[in-house]
Write a protein that binds this DNA or RNA. Structure first.
Lengths: 214, 214
DNA sequence: CACTATAACGCCACTCAGTGGCATAAACCT
DNA sequence: AGGTTTATGCCACTGAGTGGCGTTATAGTG
């Protein structure tokens, strides 16, 4: 949510959105500095001048606020595939394009840093990692609904292909994100999209990878 | 852990294993009956006549005890791929065989029921679902280590194929488990292995699934 | 510009998961 | 049997998350 989009919302909504963003930013900074478990919710709420009760009206858990950046990305992804033109392509390029396009449209200001902190925190905080994976699975299910509504594919109980293709895309995306977040060179939006392209390209070859003993 | 394997352990280990099993069985029954959140740890510990402190020496969290059946399955899987003969096959059939073989060697008595209850609980308990996914990811990483040690494949940072193949296998396995656990007909070990074979067979076709608008 | 309706917020008390510390008891070893 | 090691029980404590309710701020209306 950029400042521009914000202006044409009612005052009440505007304040809510600002509080939400302040919580995300402050949480990411504090967690990164002192560790996820090293910061209590009370401290976070103090820093944002918010009551703990209000925190739980905005986020469902402590993990939820730290996972918000990637979650927002997934939400935008769902919105994209709701209307994207398949133009005769197979499912995997379709999903890859959707991801690339969504990343391209994310807010310019500070987006990269937020996702990066989110990923690095998740990498060393089991409960956060678990939460992100759970959210991601919810998204996958919703995406499955959207795609099977829009396109002419057999239902999941008869044919697991759509489901499997989605899971592959998610796996490829995760692998790209992981390598990107661990990159010692400053990760940029461009380096992320490059990694995504590469990983998706590697998918078909993965099926036939031969196993020769060392 | 069967009663047979149990006998040649020292008394101390035997007791620990029995307590652990009692905790799993009682937890699954209680959670199924009154819901995961409807049972407190104190109640569970009372039922097994164990102090809460001892519970946390056996399991890392409330979720952990309910996820133990599938976790045990994954541990056995790791053990299997440590020594399984690839016999020239590609990675996917190799992993499929490993899973089938592991399922075949699980304890006869009550194993199906435990896994079933675990899966059905995870299906309607977000925190449990999240925990299982996290554990599963830990396993995937370990499997990656084992395979890249045993076989002659490029390291992950240069080539994501091994990693992607593992993720696909996990996705296929999950899909099989999900359909199996939701089966209105009594799920058996045979019906599970059949589903696994079918889902793995569908993987190559998933890559090229065409998207034609309805 | 009031005036009412409607959300959001703050505060307080409470439940329950999870942890640290230490005393006790059980199993192991010789 | 006697001393050592290792598991257990108990108690007090922290911190996440929830329910209830009074208060404040925004929205909608004459």
């Amino acid at each position: 949510m950029t400042e521009d989009e914000l202006r044409d919302l009612p005052l009440r909504e505007r304040k809510k959105a600002r509080t939400r963003q302040a919580l995300i930013d402050t949480a990411l900074e504090l967690f990164t500095e002192r560790g996820f478990d090293g910061v209590t919710l009370d401290e976070l709420c103090d820093a944002v001048e918010i009551s703990k009760r209000t925190f739980f009206r905005t986020f469902t858990s402590k993990e939820d606020v730290a996972g918000a950046p990637t979650h927002d990305l997934w939400i935008a992804f769902l919105d994209d595939i709701e209307s994207r033109d398949p133009s005769g392509a197979a499912i995997l390029p379709f999903l890859c394009d959707a991801l690339l396009s969504v990343i391209d449209r994310m807010p310019a200001e500070g987006w990269t840093r937020r996702v990066l902190l989110n990923l690095r925190l998740a990498d060393k905080t089991p409960s956060l990692d678990a939460h992100c994976r759970y959210l991601c699975d919810l998204i996958t299910r919703t995406a499955l609904d959207i795609l099977s509504r829009r396109f002419d594919v057999p239902p999941e109980r008869d044919d697991p292909r759509l489901r499997l293709a989605l899971d592959m895309a998610v796996a490829a995306f995760h692998h790209a994100l992981e390598g990107w977040a661990a990159d010692p060179a400053e990760p940029t939006r461009a380096s992320l999209t490059a990694r995504i392209r590469d990983t998706f390209a590697a998918v078909p070859g993965a099926l036939t990878l031969p196993l020769t003993p060392r």
